[in-house]
Design a protein around this nucleic acid. Structure first.
Length: 811
RNA sequence: GCCGAAGUGGUGGAACUGGUAGACGCGCUGGACUCAAAAUCCAGUGGCCGCAAGGCCGUGAGGGUUCGAGUCCCUCCUUCGGCACCA
């Protein structure tokens, strides 16, 4: 028996596919379109098995859609700006651009070896001027629509990467950099922001898209919507007042103090002489603390009295105003009304400083005694003047309305989401197209002057300053408005900007009169199927939704959402069940595997290893099963059978298996259950093997089965299927064939194995036709020897017949 | 602490809306082929008892609902992911 020669088949078909341009996707209005995208890889320089795990199954789905008659666009590109290129440049003394483009070439070759149906004429590389020209152009549209602004504020700074980060890029309890794991610090810097918070409410609406619940939950959580009331508190004996935000207006009669964040603007004004020294010392200490210390929930809640009092809006009583760092300046108004009886934090604080803790929401069955911990649930309002007796739920609205009538407050929705900080103090990124002029202020670079080219001769040492600042030729520029000498913005953009709109650039990567050709857009958009890792749930996946919504409002796209359907694949771990990393030495190299087993075997194994969204540890012993299956299938379909005197029969069993397999594989690919689709094909091969030795070879049923096997394999193992197809006399190309349909009649089993349970335990099994009536099935069940034995003549109380499933006899 | 996902043989994993737990693969055992090996093919493979027929136990733990629970409900345990003074 001859084995499948993957090396020559892969070379042969790769060449043929390229020559015939088989994967070129062009607008064809006679067919339904399907736009599939797999998250674009970063140009790290080496294709990891993780890239294969992300891309190959995605390719299977795209190929399958193609065979089902869709006009499929499946492009690929490279996320090419970013810090690793700059670090490589510093370490190896090569330019980030040459490092990046060298990596692009390597990775392109590696990706091509995967045999995916990528349309390479659509390739987009985000660091190319023809790409980032439009990133800049889009930035200008954001600026013109007041969605981009520059502001001085405390920002997260990664001391390792030497740049600021967006809030989304700071992870974990210790607030570390998402890229390099270094804990971030705070700095006060003048930075560019995109107003993503304008879209907070709309971003919470997932009704138009089919995205995993997990991602929806993470984004919802991240946006952090909360409804409450914002109202004014007057400072006693002062002109000044301050605003507070609360989600529990029903607890307002329980307010016994108020708290300002240490950075609150009013602190200096209202602090009395006698308290000044103490307050100053506290603020000083708070500012010296790291963010981590400050935000630690372990830390005891402390603060200092300002000496001033606020006037309670209902009782008119004076409540002391404290300064405490458990109130954040960045959320709400930076000031709170404190209700110790009904808030854990306020309770701790009041206990520590001996502040009165009156109960105003009575829990059910409350005995009137003081509380030992804060009661944060619902209840009945007490000690609340005119509101006594209302449920806390009804009181919520009643108090809110009264505050509004008094003209001091209104209902308000707050979000945890912050605006997106996009300035980065590094070289290898997209320049922000803005100019600062001493007389005109901030001036946008005119669109016709785009792109603002990144100079190739900048010094990029990690000084903490943007390298472009030191480049005089870049920095000094005439103001486009008045012609006087001005300076360019020297920070570059967060690379997540580049990847927020790449699905649009793919449509026409060479188009030079807009970010994309609307003729292409009208046909292909939006993306129908997006696949990629979950790690971008609150970064890229949030940003790209924001971009699309903003672009929609600018009239650039029509859709509300960029990607209709999303699937998150899992992660392939090392053989030791740990995350793959060079330092652990557990990295699996796809190049090596492809050399040993061939592309198709690697693709097949990755799909078989586990459910796609689950991921699994790599297992090199288990990998052997894939090439074994391919060789076996090869032998089955190519080699003639050994002589046999068996009768081939009518082939009904084989036909049944064929149609059952079509159904199973079709349904499984549809639901991304590639592992069970592969299992079904293996079962099919086992059936073919049996049929072959039963002398079915060459019959009509065999021909149908052979053809079907190749077609079902085509999306998963494109080279292998193409070679088998040709060997069997099929016309080029197997990938242009229609996906087979199953006939439900033929797929129907001839007999069903029916288990008989007595009191829920299986006691016998018998074969029965699926057409048998319930009475017949019941009769047969009762006739089984072992059933009779167990019944011992006793009369069954009840017999449950589940059609085509089982019989359960209750005694 | 809050939110979410998951715990199934030696192993990776199957199991439709509650209906034969362990599909398919890996590994292992035995056999065929071979001088021998590899490859391939055939048979077996959750545990325990039994010559067999068959029986008992079994999906992280313990309860419950049901004729019937891996699947539904309650209480725990463990692992992973996200959030965490957000008023």
């Amino acid at each position: 028996m001859s084995d499948y020669d993957f090396k020559s088949a892969e070379d042969k078909w790769q060449t043929r596919w390229t020559e015939s341009d088989i994967y070129r996707s062009v607008i064809d209005k006679s067919k339904p379109k399907h736009y599939a995208v797999t998250m674009l890889p970063y140009t790290s320089g080496d294709l990891h098995i993780g890239h294969w795990y992300a891309m190959a199954p995605s390719d299977v789905r795209a190929r399958w859609m193609r065979m089902r008659g869709y006009n499929v666009l499946f492009p690929i590109g490279f996320d090419a700006f970013g810090l690793p290129a700059e670090n490589a440049a510093i370490q190896r003394n090569i330019h980030p651009a040459s490092w990046t483009y060298k990596n692009v070439d390597t990775m392109r070759r590696q990706i091509q070896s995967m045999g995916a149906m990528f349309d390479w004429k659509r390739e987009a590389v985000t660091c190319a001027p023809e790409y980032y020209r439009w990133s800049q152009w889009l930035f200008l549209q954001f600026y013109k629509n007041e969605l981009a602004y520059k502001q001085l504020s405390p920002v997260d700074w990664c001391p390792q990467c030497n740049t600021t980060l967006a809030r989304e890029q700071v992870w974990g309890e210790d607030r570390h950099c998402e890229r390099c794991n270094t804990p971030v610090i705070k700095k006060d810097l003048n930075q560019w922001y995109l107003r993503i918070t304008d879209y907070a409410e709309e971003l919470l609406d997932f009704s138009r898209i089919e995205w995993p619940d997990r991602v929806q939950a993470m984004q919802t959580n991240w946006i952090g919507r909360s409804e409450g009331v914002e109202f004014e508190m007057q400072v006693a004996g002062h002109e000044d007042s301050f605003r507070v935000f609360t989600t529990r207006p029903d607890t307002i009669f329980g307010v016994t103090f108020a708290v300002l964040a240490p950075e609150h603007g009013l602190v200096d004004t209202i602090t009395t002489e006698s308290q000044k020294a103490e307050v100053e010392a506290y603020r000083e200490a708070a500012s010296r603390q790291t963010e981590i210390e400050r935000l630690s929930t372990e830390k005891e809640r402390d603060g200092v009295f300002t000496g001033a009092h606020a006037v309670h809006p209902f009782t008119g009583e004076g409540v002391p105003i404290y300064v405490a760092d458990y109130v954040l300046t960045t959320y709400g108004t930076g000031a709170i009304m404190a209700v110790p009886a009904h808030d854990d934090r306020d309770f701790d604080f009041a206990t520590r400083y001996g502040i009165h803790i009156p109960v105003v929401i009575a829990p059910e069955g409350w005995d009137g005694k003081p509380l030992e911990t804060a009661y944060i649930g619902q209840g009945t309002m007490v000690n609340s003047g005119e509101f006594d007796g209302l449920s806390s739920k009804a009181g919520w609205g009643a108090v809110a309305d009264r505050l509004q009538e008094k003209g001091i407050g209104e209902k308000r929705t707050n979000y945890r989401l912050r605006d997106w900080l996009i300035s980065r103090q590094r070289y290898w990124g997209c320049p922000i197209p803005m100019i600062e002029c001493p007389s005109c202020g901030l001036v946008a670079v005119p669109e016709e002057d785009l792109p603002v080219l990144l100079p190739s001769d900048a010094e990029f040492l990690p000084t903490g300053e943007s390298p472009l600042k030191l480049h005089e030729g870049f920095r000094n520029v005439a103001c486009p408005a008045c012609g006087e000498p001005g300076t360019r913005e020297t920070d570059t953009m967060d690379t997540f900007i580049c990847s927020s709109w790449y699905q649009y650039r793919y449509l026409s990567p060479d188009f030079d009169s807009g970010p994309f050709d609307t003729e292409e857009g009208d046909y292909w958009l939006p993306v129908d199927q997006y696949t990629g890792g979950i790690e971008h749930a609150t970064m890229h996946l949030l940003y790209t939704r924001f971009f699309t919504k903003a672009m929609r409002d600018m009239g650039l796209v029509e859709d509300d959402e960029p990607m209709l359907s999303l699937f998150n694949q899992g992660i392939i771990l090392g053989e030791d069940s740990e995350k793959m990393s060079k330092s652990r030495g557990n990295v699996v190299s796809p190049d090596e595997l492809v050399g040993d087993y061939g592309t198709d075997a690697v693709r097949l194994y990755l799909m078989f290893i586990s459910r796609w969204d689950q991921g699994a540890p790599w297992n090199s012993a288990s990998m052997e099963g894939a090439p074994r299956f391919l060789n076996k299938t090869w032998g089955l379909l190519i080699d003639p059978p050994e002589a046999t005197d068996k009768d081939g029969g009518d082939g009904q069993e084989l036909r049944r298996l064929t149609h059952q397999t079509i159904r199973k594989v079709t349904e499984d690919i549809d639901t991304f259950s590639f592992n069970t689709a592969v299992a079904a094909l293996m079962t099919f091969a086992n059936g073919l093997q049996k049929a072959k030795s039963d002398a079915c070879f060459g019959t009509e049923a065999w021909e149908e089965a052979r053809r079907t096997m190749i077609l079902l394999l085509a999306p998963m193992t494109p080279f292998f299927a193409e070679e088998l197809w040709e060997q069997g006399g099929g016309d080029y190309s197997v990938h242009d064939q229609a996906w087979p349909e199953w006939d439900p009649e033929l797929a129907r089993p001839s007999t069903i194995e029916m288990p008989v349970q007595i009191n829920g335990r299986v006691r016998a099994k018998f074969e029965v036709s699926p057409d048998a009536t319930q009475e017949e099935v019941e009769q047969l069940a009762l006739e089984q020897d072992n059933v009779k034995r167990h019944l011992e003549g006793a009369n069954p109380k009840k017999v449950i017949v589940v059609p085509n499933r089982l019989v359960n006899i209750v005694v």
